[in-house]
Design a protein around this nucleic acid. Structure first.
Length: 505
RNA sequence: GGCGCGUUGGUCAAUCGGCUAAGACGCCUCCCUUUCACGGAGGAAUGACGGGUUCGACUCCCGUACGUGCUACCA
């Protein structure tokens, strides 16, 4: 069998969403598992939808996840160029070849004529008429015009497209790697435009030609492409490449968490979670969309979560390293049905990966979330990371969970102390801070011993003074052990915080 | 409307004719922790519906319903 070659073929039109990233992942895993090549091909045949920066953005997203293509516009292999706009000259000849063999024809219909046709043939039973075998005989094309007329139109530089001539009464079928046997009736498929009037191919011609020329062996794409599969199948056949056709797999959709339908950027905005892999700013509207990366996701967690959204290994294991995914993944085990995206579960994955992460690395990752000007030594950050990591689902939780390591906190829960405050407690803290003043070995154990001794000496219950102490140091009822916190923030700051609060009571 | 595809707890899902239907997320209770979290122990919650086939069906077949995708000189 020939070397496995797969491709991810996005249009550079905007942010890369979950569905797109998952398509990349499955392609990548499949390629690596079979020792094949992972190709990135930019499908920029629609010049009206071109968005500046979108291609670079795609590269950035793949890089963040460590899924670098083996061949791409940045790393030319033997099958370039990898940008369809730069391959424009290639497609025309194949379209012409199809015209010669009788599988395609020139069509001169203006946009107005097409619209007119759709209105004319529209009925209640057929709300969207197709340019098909019946309709094409009433349109302006090389099937209805005489050769002389066609010649005249060419000479007059009349804009034209090349349309595929769909056969009548045929059944086209193929085996999808996920869904099995699928078949279509050609009477229900229209004469797709293959080559546009600007000389650019449409997706239909371009995928087939490029997949052939790039020797793609397996083609994975979203389920939304299923209805046009017969067009592609026939093209492979008419171009005489049937034996080289890749195996197809149509991936299920990723659905919105509530209600029904395909997950869209809007849902993320509405429900408060990212949909794009990384931050994306639309150059035209200036609209900014937060990505998983900037939201505080670790790429390993993001990938793990994505892999299991529509695929299952069949085992109980849920945490997979990229190597394990490559080892375990199989396209046949991808589900047929769409999966609703669950942000809570996504955060759970991230939480797991944060726990696995070394404190040293976490400290570096968390740095961008510190909101104070002051710089802290890295070993301080490492200690903080170790103390609060288990409370974080996102890297961005770092601040909410550990801000008091970097600033004197506002006392949110002052009332909780006030309610049960009395002179005994006030005396406790005053005498304890005095005792603390002479402590030289400022460590967790010493602090705890000192505190316990003071509790015994005053006859108070430990719990009565523990909670106030926590609130004095943290501002609220949360966070790591109080003596850990005190030990880390240091003597001066600890005493300062206690005194500040005691004064307010 | 037509065509395609899909349908196991709230969500992700296991099962490839033997089910008293795994597991995970989330939720609830309890334990641990004089905070929160982590961890531990429990709990509630599932085969869209109707027909077949079969000793036996969540698993196979057929209908129905529902959902979703497509139906552009967009991908």
């Amino acid at each position: 069998m020939s070397r496995v070659r797969v491709r991810f073929a996005p249009s550079p039109t905007g942010g890369l969403h979950l569905g797109g990233m998952r398509t990349v992942l499955y392609n990548y895993l499949f390629a690596k598992k079979h020792g094949g090549d992972f190709v990135l091909r930019i499908e920029d045949t629609d010049q009206t939808r071109f968005v500046a920066g979108a291609e670079e953005y795609i590269f950035n997203c793949l890089e963040w996840c460590g899924m670098t293509p083996d061949e791409s516009s940045r790393k030319e292999g033997a099958y370039g160029p990898y940008r369809q706009s730069e391959r424009k000259a290639i497609y025309g000849q194949y379209a012409e070849q199809l015209v010669k063999s009788g599988h395609a024809y020139y069509a001169f219909d203006t946009p107005e004529a097409l619209e007119q046709m759709r209105i004319q043939y529209k009925t209640e039973k057929n709300p969207s008429p197709m340019y098909d075998a019946k309709v094409r005989q009433y349109m302006s094309n090389s099937l209805t015009c005489s050769p002389e007329e066609v010649q005249r139109l060419f000479e007059a530089k009349t804009p034209y497209v090349i349309r595929m001539k769909m056969p009548e009464n045929e059944t086209v079928s193929f085996t999808d790697m996920i869904r099995g046997e699928i078949s279509f009736d050609t009477n229900l498929v229209d004469d797709k435009v293959l080559l546009k009037s600007d000389g650019m191919p449409t997706y239909h011609l371009a995928v087939v030609v490029d997949d052939y020329l790039m020797k793609i062996t397996h083609a994975f794409r979203g389920e939304e492409w299923l209805p046009s599969a017969p067009v592609h199948l026939l093209l492979w056949q008419y171009l005489g490449w049937k034996d080289a056709m890749p195996q197809w797999a149509h991936l299920p959709l990723i659905l919105k968490p509530d209600g029904n339908g395909k997950l869209s950027k809007r849902d993320g905005d509405r429900l408060g979670f990212p949909v794009f892999a990384m931050n994306w700013q639309d150059p035209k509207t200036g609209e900014h969309t937060e990505g998983f990366k900037e939201k505080g996701f670790l790429p390993e967690a993001f990938i793990n979560m994505l892999a299991l959204l529509g695929w299952s290994s069949g085992k109980e294991q849920e945490l997979f390293s990229i190597e394990e995914l490559i080892e375990t993944f199989s396209i046949e085990q991808v589900h047929k049905g769409g999966a609703k995206f669950d942000y809570e579960k996504a955060k759970w994955f991230n939480h797991c990966y944060i726990q696995k992460q070394q404190n040293e690395q976490l400290a570096v990752l968390m740095q961008s979330f510190i909101k104070t000007e002051k710089k802290y030594p890295s070993d301080y950050l490492v200690k903080v990371a170790g103390l609060i990591k288990e409370r974080c689902h996102l890297l961005s939780d770092f601040w909410a969970q550990g801000h008091f390591f970097f600033e004197t906190p506002a006392i949110e829960e002052l009332q909780a102390i006030k309610d049960k405050w009395n002179t005994d407690k006030a005396a406790f803290f005053i005498t304890w801070t005095v005792a603390l003043n002479s402590v030289t070995d400022w460590s967790h154990d010493i602090l705890e011993q000192s505190f316990n001794a003071q509790v015994v000496a005053t006859g108070l219950k430990k719990g009565e003074v523990m909670l106030p102490l926590r609130i004095m140091l943290v501002g609220g009822k949360y966070g790591p052990g109080v003596f850990d916190i005190a030990a880390l923030i240091g003597k001066e700051e600890t005493l300062y915080r206690i005194q500040q609060v005691v004064q307010q009571l």
